[in-house]
Design a protein around this nucleic acid. Sequence first.
DNA 1: GACAATGTTACAGT
DNA 2: CACTGTAACATTGT
Length: 243
Amino acid sequence: MPELPEVETIRRQLQKKIVGRVIGGRKVIGLRRRAKILIIDFENGASLIFHLKLTGQLIFNGKPSQYTRKVFIFDDGSKLIFNDARKFGWWKEVKETKKIEKGFGPEPLEIDLETFKNLLIKRPNAKIKPLLMDQKFIAGIGNIYSDEILYAAKVHPSRRAKTLKDKEIEQIFQNIRKILDEAIKYQGSSVEYYVDACGKKGNFVKYHKVYQKEGQKCSRCGAIIKKLKIGGRSAHFCPNCQK
DNA sequence: GACAATGTTACAGT
DNA sequence: CACTGTAACATTGT
């Protein structure tokens, strides 16, 4: 389940490995990320863009498997392997990326508290968990990190934006930074299929406090972690700590 | 064979 | 029109 930290991990690794290499006459000049989209920029202005969705993997010089959907071969013989067991992921080549850049809400690691507060004012009745996952509201956060952020902030996932106190909004804002930064530091979360560009699993699952921990004890208070469907998605939280 | 996984989108409702 | 909620869709392993 690649979300912002996983895609960012892959971006940073591929940046080191493929910049300067050439695919079909086009030289790679850099890699960017927007929301959960990975963008490979070529010298001629075109870009290759990827969305890994549930089970996508991008592995540099990996071995093809039964789930390999595409192999990009560089002119020095090195390879970029795109695997995707569930086939929800996609890639395409585009002449320009303006549409992609503008189609999402702000990047969570690039906004300040004021901006975040102003965003929330526009969506007073939305529940906070689906809101954090809404890519048009804020980009790059999915189910894992919305659960972990709200646990760290001690806010119940069903709370509506307009009921949040200033202190709680600050906590959510600060923990968006903290959790995403830490997850990037640990190369992301490998829940099922995710591996980084080296084919290695991310280590952040060790630090998950609530995601997929239904029935286990809360590490803060010992209460039993619960799971609820909110906005059609599973939400994991501590019914005691998160009000 | 039903179900769950999740990001995205279409559409219904307020 | 703006916002919110729900369902459907892509596919496959369990």
